[in-house]
Design a protein around this nucleic acid. Structure first.
Lengths: 138, 138
DNA sequence: TAAATACCTGTAGTGACTATAGGTTCAAGA
DNA sequence: TCTTGAACCTATAGTCACTACAGGTATTTA
């Protein structure tokens, strides 16, 4: 049995975050010491690692909730897990494209600015006048 | 002079958001009608367009505050504007790289999963066991 | 003039935490 | 055994950039 600090150390997750996960029902309430402090076991640690790894991969809390409940049903087909993952992958891909468009637009602004004073600054002019900007950058 | 709804229509920005920008000091308080409703002019519209365009390009509110105050000083050198923009560009680039790493990891998980039941699902196993994952995906 | 629409303020909610305050428990050294 | 300091507890508020709602007032159109 280990304390919340031990669990934090073992997973790279802050104690506050662990308590937060418990409050929102992502982590089950652990046992308590005589003085009301949390005491965790290996199952808690594994579950928290699953959660942290999923978060690092960009899954939302709600998606993780779904993944965890799927993971608990060993004998079902994993098609639902794959679908969730594939959907998330498409999300990430879309965010990449939109950030690439942003980056290109920022590059264009910087390239067009020849320096000098702000009245003639290409960056400021582009920001002020949407019409000069040709990309869509959602 | 136009109402907040007109301004919203002209800029693609919701009325609530305009009021929010006023509250945080990004938009100056406009004139008011006899019945206390906001009445805007072209300068307000231009400023809001600047703000919206900057937001679409991913600048934070605080960055926009800085850009606006720089834009107000016509006769200063635009080096500070360029620096702000360049810094933001680096930020965007970093986010792209981290999302690309995520996407690749998700692809690897999906490729490794041969289907079947959840007990043997590659996706769930990767999520459960950080050691199986070789990328860093900050 | 009446009804429909748009506007007003103030407050609370979103996601995923993080930070703080004010108090309690635990573990290690004397 | 006692003391000290670190770690823990709960509850609440703050972050960012809005968005949504409630309950009331102004304006516009028929």
């Amino acid at each position: 049995m280990f304390s919340i600090g031990d669990l934090a150390g073992a997973t790279g997750c802050k104690a506050e975050t662990i308590r937060y996960y418990e409050k929102i029902g992502l982590m089950p309430p652990p046992a308590r010491s005589a003085g009301n402090q949390r005491r965790y076991g290996k199952r808690h640690r594994d579950r928290l690692r699953f959660i942290r790894h999923s978060r690092e991969l960009g899954f939302s809390i709600e998606a993780i909730r779904a993944l965890l409940s799927l993971a608990d049903h060993d004998h079902q087909d994993c098609a639902a897990v794959d679908a969730l993952t594939r959907h998330h992958r498409q999300d990430v891909e879309a965010r990449i494209h939109s950030l690439e468009a942003l980056r290109d637009e920022l590059d264009r602004m910087l390239r067009d600015c020849a320096g000098g004073d702000i009245a003639h600054c290409g960056v400021i002019q582009t920001l002020a006048d949407h019409g000069r900007c040709d990309s869509e950058h959602i």
